[in-house]
Design a protein around this nucleic acid. Structure first.
Length: 880
RNA sequence: GGGCGCGUAGCUCAGCGGGAGAGCACUCGCUUCACACGCGAGGGGUCGCUGGUUCAAUCCCAGCCGCGCCCA
């Protein structure tokens, strides 16, 4: 016998271990089944599970478990990425606690230390995923720094280089002066700031008392100014173009150039140009042939190119000093408040400097062409579709991707430099030496590039590197491309777009057919969860408190397309209650001897009740499957919830009680078997969302099962329909509901059993009443049902059900005024509807232009309403 | 400044051209032999505002107001 409530703690660990030990999560490359692949977005190796993970992995697991049950050969590829900067920071922080820096250890020893850290602390999230019930193919787990994946990285780098798509260039990059590395545009956070605009006067050479006023938000960069730009059509400055101004403090003559970047509407219309410290200025400098003078060092202090008094000074101290000096020189025109955005490093939290350095770049614009085409042609489909616009916007304006990072933890760039700086990019040092020998005609000492690659470079290879590429493995042939990538919108650029670029380039096909973009999980008030706000809800706490299935059901039910999820504990609690409800329904079935039989044929049931529930069950399975396949997770959850609770528990099981206790042994047996079959169907269809409670019930309810539930087959019975049974049961439900309603309203004591009279019943209604006499009796507490032609004059409550009027003699309890009020209110309600419909049907435009079936439907509805209204009026007349 | 999304019951949200829905909360009743994490019955909404298209608009279009996000 099952316990009275479901104990998630006792079940989850046991069931998970059973699945994993049995190899239930594995793909089967030799299978003849059609494959279904999801590449798990590899979480950061330093990470631990947060609510966003819980959502994304729950949805992926729902898909995987569903398709596994439909008979597909599923591969859910798990793994983690090495998170270059984040991981290095964690290990450096540990070293700092011992008073050491990575430089004390040296590169090799430091990298060894990181590997040790990973061995001890790196597996957190994998175990948390297990607690979430995720069913990826664990034995195939990969890490972006694995030998195989590293080999793929080197191969890709070398090939791109040989194809001219990977190159070294001196360009401005986003420099993090704290971490001492370049970072990508995407790792820069633009923070709104109340800045200032300083207006400086630059003297025009050879024209005493003439000045050009330029505005700047970063005065310290003026030391690197190499020009002043004005708009070519700005008449105020036409005569100045080609002349020279003297850069104050530095006393450097710099040219005035014409360039459309200068906005005549903004400030003075003239703008100082610092090509080595501003992305826009860099472009202007290129166009106008201006010199590039780098005045900052790697710490963002002023360097040797600045005047002596500034050298070694911090950028912000220098800013204050510059302003002072300009003011002293009488060259500070004015200062205005200026709302602006300032770039910060998302890891370091310091202001990022555009800085001129030598870095490796990928020609992203070229690689973006094929993915753009793929999305345009629908070979990769975004769901919801509007995300494709975001994708296009970024891909069509893409900048060269800076992939080198000045850190130690990561894939070291396979480039070697000869004594004269010639670059040899090869897969191994030996090959680089050979290439150098060919180039120089002799052996020379080579120095390897010190930098490593951006972590996202290796993540971009994930859909094929995890399958064995560059080797041509059977897995690669079978599981690439994947079916769907499930992720949040925040990594469309970081990761999705880059996988598409490399997937196309190296595999010649899209990496996945669908990209399902889900919502962000927020707190109850709709705020983004963050550690600093202290509003983080730990999914594992919820899982601990309410059970993993409740958490998973909540996330699934709330995953409506296009809307963020506001996580609320009361919802989780509600779905915990749902799990308990299911548990108790199963317990009831067990207590009543409802045993699943392999011989049971749902198409062969005879009673209306059983034909009805079988049809509804089959329809629900269809709805749920279709919803999951369309990524409409909330609809799947809703259909499951409604069928299980509101159809199966509230009605079917209640109807079954009198059958079980009745005299008709054959009907009882059929109903027992049907109940068992429907319960099994509920367990199967609910399993992708609530794997634990369903598996536990599946194994507890029957002595032997051919397979664990995780490997059971999804029901596919589209032929199980019974419209006549559904109509009959809908009528019965309506009758019982109406009886209960009038009893409650008339304050009939709940325990009191009534005899009812039925007037004007059709043959159909008479037959239905005869069939379901016991069910009405039990559920509406009715003792006797008699047909009459004349209603008793008074002392009754009356309800209208279709053509029939049901009379409840309530001589002892009836409050005639209350009954009159109730009937009058019903009449008024019908009249309101009738008026609306009559108006619509009187409209000639409607009759002429609306589809015939809509007109007919409205006519029918009107007739029904009028008939009901008339019977209600008669009932009202009877009580006077 | 550009783009995207969202304003539906007290709260959280589905629905999205032809009869306003769910969960939670609320009210009333119930020791009904699976379940009080329950059962039964209820109350509650000019579907942000203004126009337009249409026989018909919560749904489509335009503008406005409010909120959020992304990009500059």
């Amino acid at each position: 016998m099952l316990d009275k409530t479901y104990d998630a703690h006792a079940v989850e660990e046991k069931r998970y271990r059973m699945w994993e030990d049995a190899g239930a999560f594995r793909c089967d490359p030799k299978s003849s089944a059609s494959p279904y692949t999801i590449m798990m977005p590899p979480p950061n190796v330093t990470g631990s599970l947060h609510m966003g993970h819980a959502l994304t992995f729950t949805l992926q697991d729902v898909l995987i478990r569903y398709f596994r049950m439909t008979g597909r050969d599923t591969l859910w590829q798990p793994g983690t990425d090495h998170a270059g900067i984040a991981t290095q920071m964690v290990v450096e922080r540990n070293l700092a606690a011992e008073g050491k820096t990575r430089h004390d250890l040296g590169r090799e020893a430091f990298v060894d230390t990181v590997w040790e850290w990973k061995a001890h602390s790196g597996g957190t999230i994998q175990n948390q995923l297990r607690r979430l019930g995720s069913s990826p193919d664990w034995p195939r787990e990969r890490f972006t720094m694995d030998d195989g994946l590293s080999r793929a990285v080197v191969k890709v780098f070398v090939q791109l280089h040989k194809q001219g798509l990977m190159y070294r260039d001196k360009r401005l990059v986003n420099w993090d002066p704290k971490l001492h590395t370049a970072i990508s545009d995407l790792e820069v956070e633009q923070r709104p700031t109340d800045g200032q605009m300083w207006y400086f006067r630059y003297p025009v050479q050879g024209e005493p008392d003439r000045f050009v006023v330029v505005g700047t938000t970063r005065p310290e960069t003026m030391l690197g100014d190499t020009g002043v730009a004005v708009h070519p059509e700005d008449e105020r400055y036409t005569d100045l173009v080609g002349k020279t101004v003297i850069l104050p403090i530095v006393d450097r003559p710099i040219p005035v150039v014409a360039d459309e970047y200068a906005d005549p509407e903004k400030g003075s219309g003239a703008v100082k140009i610092t090509p080595a410290h501003d992305f826009n200025d860099f472009e202007v400098g290129r166009r106008c042939g201006l010199e590039m003078i780098n005045v900052l060092d790697r710490d963002a202090r002023l360097n040797e190119n600045a005047p002596a008094e500034f050298q070694g000074m911090d950028r912000f101290d220098a800013r204050a000093r510059i302003v002072e000096r300009m003011e002293a020189l009488g060259l500070l025109e004015k200062i205005e408040p200026n709302p602006m955005t300032v770039p910060y490093g998302d890891r370091s939290g310091v202001v990022i400097e555009p800085w001129l350095t030598d870095q490796w770049f990928v020609d992203a614009a070229e690689l973006a062409k094929a993915p753009i085409k793929a999305v345009e042609e629908g070979r990769t489909r975004f769901v919801p579709a509007h995300w494709s616009n975001v994708f296009f916007e970024w891909m069509r304006n893409i900048q060269p991707w800076c992939v080198s990072r000045q850190i130690w933890w990561g894939h070291r760039i396979p480039a070697w430099y000869g004594p004269d700086g010639t670059i040899f990019v090869e897969e191994t040092e030996a090959e680089a030496q050979a290439a150098a020998r060919t180039h120089y005609g002799a052996d020379v000492a080579l120095e390897r590039d010190a930098d490593v690659l951006d972590t996202w470079f290796s993540s971009a290879l994930w859909p094929f590197s995890t399958l064995g590429w560059p080797d041509e493995t059977p897995e690669l042939a079978r599981y690439y491309p994947g079916n769907v990538l499930v992720t949040g919108f925040d990594i469309i650029f970081f990761w999705v777009a880059r996988m598409m670029m490399f997937g196309h380039h190296f595999m010649g096909d899209v990496p996945f057919r669908d990209v399902y973009i889900h919502a962000l999980v927020r707190d109850e008030k709709g705020q983004k969860m963050s550690k600093s706000k202290g509003n983080v809800i730990d999914p594992l706490d919820l899982s601990e408190q309410y059970g993993t299935d409740a958490l998973r059901f909540t996330l699934t039910a709330m995953a409506a397309q296009g809307r963020d999820i506001k996580m609320s504990e009361s919802r989780v609690q509600g779905y915990r209650n749902f799990a308990t409800k299911l548990w108790n329904a199963a317990r009831f079935c067990q207590m009543n001897g409802c045993a699943a039989s392999p011989d049971f044929d749902p198409a062969g049931v005879t009673s209306t009740l059983n034909r009805w529930i079988v049809a509804r069950a089959a329809a629900t399975a269809g709805t749920v499957g279709a919803a999951i396949e369309a990524y409409r997770f909330n609809e799947a959850a809703q259909a499951l919830y409604q069928f299980t609770w509101n159809t199966f528990c509230d009605w079917f099981l209640e109807f079954a009680k009198p059958v079980f206790n009745g005299d008709d042994a054959a009907a009882a047996a059929e109903t027992r078997a049907t109940a068992a079959w429907v319960l099994d169907l509920i367990l199967v269809t609910l399993h992708p969302v609530m794997p634990y409670v369903t598996e536990e019930l599946w194994q507890s309810l029957a002595e032997t099962r051919d397979t664990p539930l995780i490997r059971a087959r999804w029901p596919d019975r589209p032929g199980l329909v019974a419209p006549d049974a559904e109509a009959e049961m809908d009528w019965l439900v309506g009758l019982i509901t109406a009886l209960r309603s009038v009893r409650a309203e008339m304050n009939v004591p709940p325990a009191a059993r009534l005899a009812i009279l039925v007037k004007d019943a059709s043959d159909t209604t008479r037959a239905r009443l005869a069939t379901h006499r016991d069910l009405v009796g039990t559920l509406a507490r009715v003792d006797a049902i008699d047909h009459v032609t004349e209603a008793p004059a008074s002392g009754s409550a009356q309800i209208v059900v279709d053509e029939a009027t049901v009379i409840l003699p309530l001589a002892d309890v009836i409050d005639l005024d209350a009954e009159r009020a109730r009937l009058s209110r019903d009449v008024a309600k019908q009249d309101g509807e009738i008026a609306k419909l009559a108006k619509k049907l009187a409209n000639e435009g409607f009759l002429a232009k609306a589809p015939a079936e809509v007109v007919a439907e409205n006519r029918e509805r009107l007739a029904d309403l009028e008939a009901t209204r008339d019977r209600l009026k008669e009932a009202l007349a009877r009580i006077g």
